[in-house]
Amino acid sequence: MSGTAEIYDAVLTPGKIDLLRAWIREQSWFDGDPDRLEQVTSYRFVDPDGQVGMESFLLTDGARTFHVPVTYRGEELPGAEGALVGTVDHSVLGPRWVYDAPADPVYVAEVRRVIGHRDTAADHLAVEDGTITPAPVNIRGGGSGSATDPGSAPQILRVISEENDAEADCPLIGSPGTLSGTWHDADGSHTAVLVVVD
Rank of each mutant, 00 (worst) to 15 (best):
P154M: 04
S28D: 15
L157E: 01
S144I: 14
A5G: 11
P34I: 07
P176Y: 14
T65C: 05
P102Y: 05
R118W: 06
L37A: 02
V137L: 04
A103M: 12
Y43S: 04
D185G: 02
P150E: 03
D169M: 15
L12V: 08
A166C: 12
G53Y: 08
D119R: 12
L58P: 01
T131I: 10
V40Q: 06
Y8R: 15
P34M: 04
A153G: 00
G177C: 07
D165G: 02
G141M: 10
T65A: 00
W23E: 11
P136T: 06
M54N: 01
T148N: 11
V196G: 02
E81G: 12
Y72C: 04
T191D: 14
F66A: 03
V46D: 07
A10E: 12
L77N: 03
E162H: 06
K16A: 13
E55R: 10
L93N: 09
I7K: 14
T178L: 10
C170Y: 10
M54V: 05
S146R: 13
D104L: 15
M54F: 08
D185A: 10
G116L: 01
V127A: 01
A122E: 01
V159R: 13
A153P: 06
V85W: 04
D18G: 15
T71K: 03
H124A: 09
D185H: 12
A121K: 10
L58A: 00
E163V: 08
P105A: 10
G79T: 10
D49P: 00
L194D: 05
F30C: 04
E26G: 08
G94I: 03
I17G: 05
V88Q: 07
V106Q: 08
G62K: 01
F57K: 00
V106G: 03
G74C: 10
D49V: 11
G188C: 11
T41H: 07
I139T: 00
R44H: 04
V127M: 07
D198V: 13
V11L: 13
D119Y: 09
E163S: 14
V11P: 02
D9W: 11
L20K: 05
T133E: 09
A192F: 09
L19N: 06
G151T: 09
W29C: 12
A153R: 09
P134H: 08
D35C: 05
F30Y: 15
H117S: 15
G53D: 07
T65Y: 01
E128L: 06
D49W: 13
